[in-house]
Measured scan of single mutants.
Amino acid sequence: KGCNCRRSGCLKNYCECYEAQIMCSSICKCIGCKNY
């Protein structure tokens, strides 16, 4: 399942991608994603 966080840059544990240690991709559609 994808993540669509808006404010944290996908760097907080409530973002599913970050919590699962998945990098930003087409699945993880965080706005302004900084989780490289």
Results as ranks from 00 to 15, higher is better:
K1L: 07
K1S: 04
K1V: 00
G2R: 03
G2A: 08
G2S: 07
C3M: 07
C3L: 01
C3F: 02
N4E: 10
N4L: 07
N4Y: 07
N4C: 08
N4I: 05
N4K: 05
N4V: 00
N4P: 11
N4G: 09
C5E: 08
C5I: 00
C5R: 02
C5P: 06
R6F: 08
R6W: 12
R6A: 15
R6D: 14
R6N: 04
R7Y: 12
R7N: 07
R7D: 14
R7A: 15
R7T: 12
S8P: 11
S8H: 03
S8R: 08
S8D: 10
S8T: 06
G9P: 07
G9N: 06
G9F: 00
G9C: 00
G9W: 00
C10R: 02
C10A: 08
C10E: 12
C10W: 03
C10D: 09
L11E: 12
L11F: 13
L11Y: 01
L11D: 03
L11A: 13
K12I: 04
K12Q: 10
K12E: 12
K12P: 10
K12W: 01
N13M: 02
N13F: 01
N13G: 11
N13R: 07
N13T: 06
Y14D: 14
Y14C: 14
Y14I: 09
Y14H: 15
Y14G: 13
Y14A: 06
Y14E: 12
Y14M: 14
C15H: 03
C15N: 01
C15F: 01
C15S: 01
C15K: 06
C15P: 06
C15Y: 01
C15V: 01
C15I: 00
C15L: 01
C15M: 01
E16C: 01
E16R: 05
E16L: 03
E16K: 02
E16F: 03
C17W: 02
C17Q: 07
C17D: 14
C17R: 03
C17Y: 01
C17N: 02
C17A: 04
C17F: 15
C17S: 04
Y18D: 09
Y18Q: 13
Y18T: 10
Y18A: 11
Y18G: 12
Y18L: 04
E19H: 08
E19F: 05
E19L: 06
E19S: 07
E19T: 05
E19K: 09
E19Q: 09
A20H: 00
A20W: 06
A20P: 06
A20R: 11
A20C: 03
A20M: 05
Q21R: 13
Q21V: 03
Q21S: 11
Q21A: 09
Q21W: 02
Q21L: 06
I22A: 12
I22K: 09
I22C: 02
I22L: 10
I22S: 10
I22T: 13
M23G: 14
M23E: 13
M23D: 14
M23S: 10
M23I: 02
M23Q: 11
C24M: 04
C24Q: 10
C24V: 03
C24S: 07
S25T: 08
S25W: 03
S25E: 05
S25F: 01
S25A: 10
S26N: 10
S26E: 15
S26A: 12
S26G: 13
S26R: 07
I27W: 01
I27Q: 14
I27R: 13
I27E: 14
I27P: 13
C28N: 05
C28S: 08
C28Q: 02
C28K: 04
C28D: 06
C28Y: 00
K29R: 12
K29I: 05
K29F: 00
K29A: 14
K29E: 15
C30N: 01
C30S: 04
C30P: 07
C30L: 00
C30G: 06
C30E: 07
C30T: 03
I31S: 14
I31Q: 13
I31K: 09
I31G: 14
I31Y: 05
I31N: 13
I31D: 15
I31R: 13
G32A: 07
G32D: 03
G32Q: 04
G32V: 03
C33G: 11
C33T: 08
C33N: 15
C33F: 08
C33H: 09
C33W: 03
C33S: 09
C33Q: 04
C33R: 06
K34L: 13
K34C: 13
K34W: 12
K34E: 14
N35F: 01
N35D: 14
N35C: 04
N35I: 13
N35V: 04
N35Q: 13
N35Y: 01
Y36S: 11
Y36W: 12
Y36I: 15
Y36D: 14
Y36P: 15
Y36V: 15
Y36L: 11
